[in-house]
Amino acid sequence: MQTKETIVCRCEDITLDEIQSLIKQGYRTIDEIKRVVRAGMGPCQGRTCRMLIAQELAKAYGVPVSEVLMPTFRPTVKPVKLGTFAGGESDAENC
């Protein structure tokens, strides 16, 4: 696989090569990788990359994906404007 051209985190443009290199350096969980290169910190909050990184960790450590520690799933579920929280839908220019 072209690891340098394969994007794992689309929000932050992180490649498979970067992820594999961090795992080799000893970053052991999705949480650690996220904090070092921002994979999973973008607008989609890891919807794409979380499981891809989990698979890479599972491969590297020889464990099932179910044993890879998942980061905490945090609100908000989708990006929402501050104005919506402050005064409801009608106060925010949501379109």
Binding site: P43, Q45, R74, T76, V80, L82, A86, G87
Partner: peptide
């Protein structure tokens, strides 16, 4: 744990002090 009360509170305070921010989308709270 994260609370919804915080989201409403911080949104109101931030928009009062920095009104322009009302159009910014929140992506994560912790």
């Amino acid at each position: 744990n994260s609370s919804w009360e915080f989201l409403e509170d911080v949104a109101r305070q931030a928009i009062t002090v920095l009104p322009l921010l009302k159009n910014l989308r929140v992506v994560r709270q912790w």
